[in-house]
């Protein structure tokens, strides 16, 4: 565990806390893509199946359970408790366009052709693009609430910090996982446009509004 990795995980937890707090406080999930949240839930479920087969540390298992639990809770808030506020007309990204290529890619580009390994690889590929329905929704409505922007910034920072962690681990431990690194880079690149808008607008107390 290095500082980048710790900060990454904290940013990830912060993102989840911001999202749940926003929905709970406003009693509304307006502006949040349920489809991105479905994809994230799928990502955690596929990746953390190994919680039963391999033990890394107490920290590791706790975080896995936290991500599984909170993603289930988020889906419950969006699709049950606050369903009337869910903006499904603007959440129109077709997730099959992400699921099918990720599934095919994980069958061909993996570390080992075994069920758990392919599911892990699928989750890594899917995570890298899972935010697209949310970004698509922001682009479609042309704006995002500040709190949604904070959520996206924390969530994007998490994988960017993992990239720093991988550089550190490559130098310090000669450890690297090419699949995770490339997918992590793709994931981070997808947020770049948003990061730019966040820094130039939201941090200056302006609403995130896209140019028409």
């Amino acid at each position: 565990m290095n500082i980048f990795r710790l900060m990454a995980d904290l940013a990830h937890v912060l993102a989840i806390v911001i999202l749940l707090h926003k929905i709970w406080k406003s009693r509304s999930c307006a502006g949040i893509s349920g489809k991105s949240q479905i994809l994230f839930a799928l990502v955690y479920f596929m990746r953390y199946l190994d919680i039963m087969t391999s033990y890394v540390s107490f920290y590791n298992s706790t975080m896995k359970l936290l991500f599984l639990g909170t993603s289930g809770a988020t889906l419950n808030l969006i699709y049950r408790k606050f369903k009337p506020s869910y903006d499904h007309n603007h959440d129109s990204f077709r997730i099959a366009y992400l699921l099918v290529p990720c599934a095919l890619l994980s069958l061909f580009l993996n570390h080992e052709f075994s069920v758990l390994e392919i599911l892990w690889t699928f989750s890594i590929y899917l995570e890298s693009v899972a935010i697209l329905p949310q970004l698509f929704m922001v682009a479609k409505t042309g704006e995002a609430e500040s709190i949604t922007s904070h959520y996206l910034f924390a969530l994007g920072s998490y994988r960017a910090l993992y990239v720093c962690n991988w550089v550190y681990r490559y130098i310090a431990e000669s450890h690297f996982d090419l699949i995770a690194i490339i997918a992590g880079l793709v994931q981070t690149i997808l947020y770049c446009d948003f990061f730019y808008l966040y820094i130039t607008k939201v941090l200056q107390n302006r609403k995130l509004q896209l140019p028409a």
């Binding site: 995980d9 990830h12 975080m63 896995k64 991500f67 993992y162 090419l178």
Partner: peptide
Amino acid sequence: YPGIHVKDEL
């Protein structure tokens, strides 16, 4: 890859 691929991350 075996040996390199340790899944100790989240």
